[in-house]
C-alpha cells in the first residue's frame, strides 16, 4: 500500500541525482570527469529503469535494465579505448606492442 508512493519518491530522487550527473558532464573540466559522469549516470539509469518497471508492474523493464547495465559498461570501456588510441580498430593483443614502441609516454 505504501510501495507505489515509495517507488515514486525513489524515482524522483534518482532523477534529481541524474540531473546532478548531467551537470557534472557539462562542467567537468577534464575528459575523465565526463566519462565518470556518463558511467555514473548509466548506473542511475539502470536503477531508475528497475524502479520504474516495478512501479508500473511489468517485469519487461528489468530486461532493458540488465541490457543497459551491459551496454553502459562496454560503452565506458570503448570511450576510454578510443580516446587513448584515437581508434577502435586496435586489437587488444597489439596494444602492449604499440605502447612499447611509443616508449610508455602515450599522449
Amino acid at each position: 500500500m505504501i510501495t507505489p508512493i515509495l517507488d515514486f519518491g525513489i524515482a524522483i530522487v534518482l532523477a534529481v541525482s541524474m540531473v546532478l550527473m548531467i551537470s557534472r558532464l557539462f562542467i567537468g573540466p577534464t575528459l575523465y570527469d565526463r566519462v565518470l559522469a556518463v558511467n555514473s549516470f548509466g548506473t542511475k539509469t539502470v536503477l531508475f529503469l528497475a524502479v520504474f518497471s516495478l512501479m508500473v508492474g511489468r517485469g519487461d523493464g528489468l530486461d532493458i535494465a540488465l541490457l543497459y547495465a551491459l551496454i553502459n559498461f562496454i560503452a565506458t570501456i570503448a570511450i576510454l579505448k578510443f580516446f587513448r588510441y584515437r581508434s577502435l580498430d586496435v586489437a587488444l593483443s597489439q596494444m602492449a606492442l604499440r605502447r612499447a614502441l611509443d616508449g610508455e609516454d602515450d599522449d
Binding site: G9, I10, V16, M21, K44
Partner: peptide
C-alpha cells in the same frame, strides 16, 4: 523494503552531491 530503498536513495543522492 522501504528501509532498504530509502537508505539506498539517500546514498545515491549523497554520492551525486559528492561528485559535484
Amino acid at each position: 523494503s522501504a528501509g532498504f530503498v530509502i537508505t539506498g536513495a539517500v546514498f545515491v543522492l549523497a554520492g551525486a552531491i559528492g561528485v559535484i
